[in-house]
Amino acid sequence: MNKLQGILPPLLFGAVLTGLWQLGVFNRIFNISQLQLPLPSKIIGVFISHLTAIGQNAVTTIAPAAVGLILGALLGYWMALIIAAFPQGGYGLMILVTIVNAIPIIALAPLMNRWFTVPFITKLAVIMVAASGSMTVHALQGLKNVAEEKLDLMHSCAAGKWEVFLRVRIPNSLPSVFSGLKIGVSAALLATIISEFFSKETSGIGYMIKHSLKVGNQRPLGWAYILAMSLFSVALYAVICILERRLIRWHASRR
């Protein structure tokens, strides 16, 4: 029953949205043709008829996206640890992280193409940069934003800096880590798509989106690939939510 209550509202809302879209309401509101925004029935039809091809292209995309998200998150957390442990020395690192993260992906992706020759590595580098940024900022906030009474308690027990880190700060950062991961999912997948726009490969969801959307009669196929990417992102997001529930059941935000 509880589970049903969790799943039902988004499903119903999605059904209503899809229904309105299918009736052409969005096309009318936005004043655009079905060539620019195909109807869901058309997109789903194309999605089903191209399922094998979509599956093959997804393999090219999902592997670097997932690996890049994990590695990027680890890198981001690691940098947050350094910055939190050495607030003054780490400040400059924070600035550097921000600069690197602020390089627009449309400049970073072609640059990484020049640096690395293997498309997988090229994509991985772009995705890691994209995913690490939100993780660093979030984890840092979690590491620092500790309730004072907990710190007071630790101090009264004469705990050292490292013990405070291990027992209070790191556990306290977990909820923020998950916020960072959730934003990281969208940042990483967007980075994946854009890096595939620039990749040498002629496969992958991003590649298919770019080229299908440019060819007038292949627009619905482009949207079918957007649908595929969306399904993948929701799956990743769901995995992160499940992990979150398992790992921090005790935390206030999940009580």
Binding site: F13, G14, L17, L189, L190, F197, I226, M229, S233, V234
Partner: peptide
């Protein structure tokens, strides 16, 4: 709406 906010970010600028 939360799942759909995430989905909204999946539509690339080109689309």
């Amino acid at each position: 709406i939360l799942p759909y906010l995430l989905l909204s970010q999946m539509i690339p600028i080109i689309g």
